[in-house]
Every structure is written in C-alpha cells, then in structure tokens.
Design a binder for these strands. Structure first.
Length: 442
RNA sequence: GCCCUGGUGGUGUAGGGGCUAUCAUGUGGGCCUGUCGAGCCCGCGACUCGGGUUCAAAUCCCGGCCAGGGCGCCA
C-alpha cells in the first residue's frame, strides 16, 4: 500500500545539520531532511541532506556501505524527504569537517520530477515562478533567512511592548462600513449585510483608550484594495499598531524609536547567520533618529530640483530626493493638517500644522502616527471638514463622549520594516504568500 | 488605472517572415572511489492565447491574458 510507506514509526531525528561537526565523530546519528544534491561516482556516492539549520553530507563508499542502502540512495530524487541513520566520522574533505556513513535509509516521501523550480539556484527563477511554488522557494536558505529575521523582529517587538507595560489586543477585521474614507476597502458578504475587511485598527485602538487600558498594541493583518503595483505595496499586510493614553506625538515617537533600536540590536545579535546569508549589514542607527519638519522637507526637496508645493503629500520623486538627503531612519514631523486624517490633532494656535509624523527609512515610509484628537466636538468638526458624514462614525464617536483621555499612537508596516531589516528590494520577498494586485494564490 | 518593455523546453535564456529553433540547468539512461556549481557519453523536453496580413508567422499587425520596470493612487 503506497499510502502507508514512509512512516516515521520509532525513528526520530537526533541531530540537525548544524549539530553535525567533528565533535560528534564516532557516534550514531539520525538525520532527517530534504535531498539537496546527489553526486554519484559509482564507487562512492555523496548525498547532501538539508534541513532548516543547514546541510550535512552523507558519504557512501560502495565498499563500506551495504548494497541495499546504496540501492536506496541511488533511487533518491532531489528534494525528497529522507531519514538516514549512520555513523558520524571526521572528514577534513567534507563540509563542516564531518560526514555520515549511512547504515539505514528511510524514504519518508519521494519528490516528483521535474521540480517546478530549482531550490539549489543553479538557474535562478523569477519572482513569479518562485511565488507560484513558494514552499519550494522557502527551502532556500536565502529565502527562509528573511522569515527567520521577520520572526525575530516580531519577537523583539512583543518583548519590548510587554516590558513597557503594553497590553496586546485583537480588534475586528470584519467591519461594518467604509467610515474612514480615503483608501479603498474590500467588500465582503456578511450574511444579509454588506461588510468590509479592515484597512486599519485605528478607530478600535483609539476606542480602547476610552476603556482605560492605557497602552495597547496589536500585530495583525490589514487589507487595502488599492490597485497599486509597486515594489513596496501589498493588498494584505501586517500592521504593528500602538496607542498610548496620556501621551503626545513626542512620547510615541520616542517609543517607536526605542523599539526599532531594540529590533536592530536583537537582529544583529541573534540573526547574524541570516544577515550573512543575505549579505546584508544592518547599521546600528543613532540612539535618537533625526527629526525633520514638513516645511524643512519641502525646502530640501525643492533644493534637489524637485518641485513640491507646500500642502501636498510627497510624490515618489520627492520621497527619493528627501531620502537621498537624509538617509537612514528619520522622522518627518509637523505635517499640514489638511492632508492628514480627521483624527490627527492640529497644533494649538497654528491649526494649519498638525501633530502628525511619519517615520521614514531612506525614501520608504515605514510608519505614520500622531497625537489624536480626543475632544468629541473637534473630531466631529474635522470629520465634516473632510467631506465625511459624522453619522457614519456613531460607535466610534460614542467613545469620546464619556471620558476619552488625550492619546497618541502609530502604525508600522511590518513587511516594509522587514525590507529594511533584510535588505530586500521587493516587498513580496517579505511576505510568505503575498497578496498583490494580481496574485491571490497560493 | 497610465506609460515603457517583454512572454521560446520544468527553470533561466539566444534567435526574430521559410532553421532539424540556440545555450545552460534539469530530467531519463550509461561510465566513474573524495565530490562540494563534480566530469564525460547518449536520450527527452519549448515558440502565451485569439484574430489578421502573407505562398509561408515563433518572428509582422491588432486585441486579450500574464509578467518585469516606472508612475499615479496609498485616511
């Protein structure tokens, strides 16, 4: 019965590939992983087994290995899953100075041929082919390295939030209406009602400020139905959101700044191997990122010969000019109120400007945040000024009627941050199964 | 959504009105006892789809679909 072949039974892995070194010479080991390469010389055969930690060489000289084992090795196909029991022996000629002399081979699952792409990258596949066979693509160490780093990033961020007294929350992604205006939402059927996929936890995390849970954060998916087609946009992304009561924009910029310094230090410490695989050096930034006001940014952009009228968002060209001048991480502050959303607090006495900020890395926008409006009537006024109907914001506005503290917060695009941490130029590299304008599978 | 470029074996490519359609990798088989992008020999495998022009289209034209790059959009 074919279906019952390849059972693990009492076999268990004793050593990962990176636990195979000359120190284990002489001991029996059980290796489990994928067949990376097979080099058959007739009289001697090399099979390279790969697992999540790296590779280990199985060496099978015909005179030292049983005929049955040799036969099993000959029948292997690349990328098949195997378990091999054997003895480790020191071998200066072998990678890592150790090789496994096989005694028993168990084929756990044979891979079909030909493969839809080549995980050894002798012939590099295009991104589209790679994403179509993403599970195979991720078998490459330079791809899994990105997700190991992304995982460490989330780990550090969660540690940072918990260490600083934040509560982790989950807000709904099924929402009733397109109340925020602006960005396009994905409509879905919700029984007999129309609903949408959430574009941002913004309104919910603000409502949490009225709950008394002073500091909250959420790491969750957001959905945006824009038909953009660039190297830095996804239609489904992960947003790292924070909101803090009794705080203003300066306070939350400091939190974001400190958090990112922690992230960079941790990745440098704990993901040194992955960074090396990627050939990426993560520069440790200054403790305090530079701040540039919007007015200064306009001057810089204009000085670079890129026309930019005051009161407009930065064009791509303007972002590039500013990125060239600033470099690295920097905050862009004091944005004009009119191009920021209704929940952004205007400056006291100079309402043309706001307490909104963006965090940039070179020319890439990583985050935006602000001191929020916590006064009900001002919020209603600003909603109206932007051509929106306050009646559509009933459940949100209600939270501002019975004791809403002053608060501030921000959201960071996790895949964009991963681009910075890994040196990736295409945001699709930083999502396991990216969703873009044209891709809904796998 | 707009502009530009492209779509050729499983993968990555060369070619560009009539070719037996190039090369690499792969894959199937054979030889080979120290490979680590192993080597050598033999075989296999492809012109994005629809329409048009033409004696003849993978090649030229139109449209669709898809991709790459750039931009717009991105509260």
């Amino acid at each position: 019965m074919n279906n019952l072949q390849g059972l693990l039974k009492d076999w268990r892995r004793t050593n990962y590939a990176n636990q195979c070194n000359p120190e284990i010479a002489g001991s029996d080991v059980t290796i489990m992983g994928w067949v990376h390469e097979i080099r058959d010389f007739g009289g001697i055969m090399f099979v390279i087994i790969r697992d999540v930690t790296g590779r280990v060489q199985i060496t099978a000289p015909s005179k030292k290995v049983e005929a049955e084992v040799l036969e099993q090795l000959r029948e292997l196909r690349k990328e098949s899953v195997v378990a091999i029991k054997g003895m480790a022996q020191e071998a200066p000629k072998a990678p890592n100075g150790v090789e496994i002399l096989p005694k028993e081979v168990k084929v756990l699952n044979m891979a079909n041929q030909p493969l839809p792409m080549d995980p050894t990258e002798k012939v590099k596949a295009g991104i589209d082919t790679r994403l179509d066979s993403r599970f195979l693509d991720i078998r490459k160490e330079n791809v899994s390295a990105i997700f190991k780093i992304k995982g460490q990033m989330f780990h550090t961020i969660r540690d940072f939030f918990y260490d600083n007294g934040f509560y982790e929350i989950n807000t709904p992604k099924l929402v009733a209406s397109a109340t925020e205006g602006g960005t396009e939402l994905f409509p879905i059927a919700y029984f007999d009602k129309e609903a949408f996929l959430g574009q941002s936890p913004q309104l919910y995390k603000q409502m949490m400020m009225a709950s008394g849970m002073d500091k909250v954060f959420e790491i969750a998916q957001i959905f945006r139905a824009e038909e953009h087609d660039t190297l830095r946009h996804l239609n489904e992304a992960v947003s790292i959101d924070a909101e803090v009561s009794f705080a203003d924009d300066e306070d939350v910029m400091k939190i974001l700044n400190d958090m990112l310094v922690n992230v960079i230090n941790d990745i440098n410490d704990k993901c040194a191997d992955e960074l090396e695989i990627l050939g990426h050096e993560l520069e440790i930034p200054d403790e305090k990122f530079p701040h540039v006001t919007y007015d200064e940014a306009v001057e810089i952009v204009n000085a670079h010969g890129v026309e930019m009228p005051w009161g407009e968002d930065l064009s791509r060209e303007a972002e590039k000019a500013l990125g060239d001048e600033m470099g690295g991480f920097y905050f862009l502050t004091e944005w004009p109120s009119e191009i920021k959303p209704f929940y952004v607090m205007p400056k006291d006495g100079d309402e043309k400007y706001s307490h909104a900020f963006d965090l940039m890395y070179n020319n890439l926008e990583l985050s935006s945040g602000a001191t929020r409006v916590h006064q009900h009537d001002l919020l209603v006024k600003q909603i109206g000024e932007r051509g929106l109907n306050p009646e559509g914001f009933g459940t949100y506005l209600k939270a501002f009627e019975y004791g809403m503290p002053p608060h501030a917060g921000w959201g960071v695009g996790a895949e964009r941050l991963t681009m910075v941490m890994t040196g990736s130029e295409n945001i699709r590299e930083c999502a396991l199964f990216p969703r873009d304008r044209h891709r809904l599978t796998p």
